[in-house]
Nucleic acid binder design. Structure first.
Lengths: 197, 197
DNA sequence: CATTTTAGTGAACACCCGTCCACCGAGAAC
DNA sequence: GTTCTCGGTGGACGGGTGTTCACTAAAATG
């Protein structure tokens, strides 16, 4: 049934998703829906759980290896992974702008959590030792946001358009490298030092 | 009438916006809508035009002054500007994830256009002379995406919560500075050079 | 002043929506 | 072998949806 929903989800907003269209796609009468979920919001939260579970699996897999590979290699991996789980990522992307407060807050919270996990990971790397928690979160947020934009770009591109996908991957990789290059130059305390940039 | 829509827009998705609720808020019978717009999509595009006009006005205003001030000063300006035009920015943010292809593609195109304009602007600054068009677009996209995330964060925060807003502004400013610090270190050709970052 | 355009009216249309109900067949539990 | 739970059925309900129509008052145009 969730599979049926996700198949529909490949193009529609979650808000615009009607209970009847879901149950029809599942080959079931509308009333049967209530045997499984209490409301549409409930369905949304269940899908969120499932989707973020696959997302977390990806992040865990990428967390292995040194930071150098974590940039060059894993962006390519990200593209592949998103294409493998297009439905889940599409759902998350759409849920971000959902009208339901519960859903929107939930996905926002999950993303923030991912960012703070990345921050604690970053704290272990040489150039980032001694950084304040705020600054670590700042750079983690920057990276996560860049990755979200990358995912959205992937979703907006057909999976079979290898050329476009490669370009997106290359751009994302360069963006990460650029951020990483800025880190050793960072002087947290100074409010100046960038006047000639 | 558009004002009535935008007042409703402060909390709902564009997709979930019914013709009848709009006309009711405007104090008018549903049929009267068709005297002004051909369809809801049409209304959306009209609102897009208006919203992006204010966005462009902001960008034009910020384009004056040296790049140093363009970072430190204008992020603070951005926050203020978004708060002044919350309705327009909220509309754009919601339209990004709209179910209507026309609307979504339109807002995507506009944002891409803004990014490429920023790219040509960046090309004039010392450290960026000689960069390839691709790389200029890469950094412009990174910056624009960071700013979009900033705007979304602002919209998610009540306008009167000065503390939270200041924190968002400070983070955005630091992110911009970090990117700028990476630029002088950039060597476009090298596929390595970041292994120890 | 006569005429035409404009903006709005109210009623009707067919359709889709979420929700609830009594009912029922298959399978598990005892 | 009876009972009970689970997932599904079909039908109905009240209400909201976009769209259309002939009609009209006011305003602009000539």
């Amino acid at each position: 049934m969730e599979a049926a929903l996700l198949r529909i989800q490949a193009g529609e907003t979650f808000d615009a998703l009607s209970l009847r269209s879901i149950t029809k796609a599942a080959g079931v009468v509308p009333a049967a829906f209530y045997r499984h979920f209490e409301s549409l919001d409930d369905l949304g939260l269940a899908l969120m759980d499932e989707s973020f579970r696959t997302l977390r699996a990806m992040l865990r897999a990428q967390r292995t290896g040194d930071p150098g590979a974590a940039i060059a290699g894993s962006v390519h991996g990200l593209v592949a992974y998103v294409n493998e789980h297009r439905d889940h990522f599409a759902f998350i992307a759409r849920a971000r702008g959902s009208a339901s407060d519960r859903l929107r807050r939930a996905v926002l919270g999950e993303i923030r959590l991912i960012a703070s996990e990345l921050a604690t990971d970053l704290a272990r790397y040489p150039h980032l030792r001694g950084w304040s928690i705020e600054d670590l979160n700042m750079v983690a947020t920057l990276i996560v946001n860049a990755m979200i934009s990358t995912v959205e770009a992937i979703l907006e591109t057909p999976a079979e358009d290898a050329r476009a996908q490669a370009l997106i991957a290359a751009t994302a990789e360069k963006q990460l490298r650029l951020v990483m290059l800025g880190i050793p130059q960072w002087r947290s305390g100074g409010s100046d030092g960038v006047a000639d940039a």
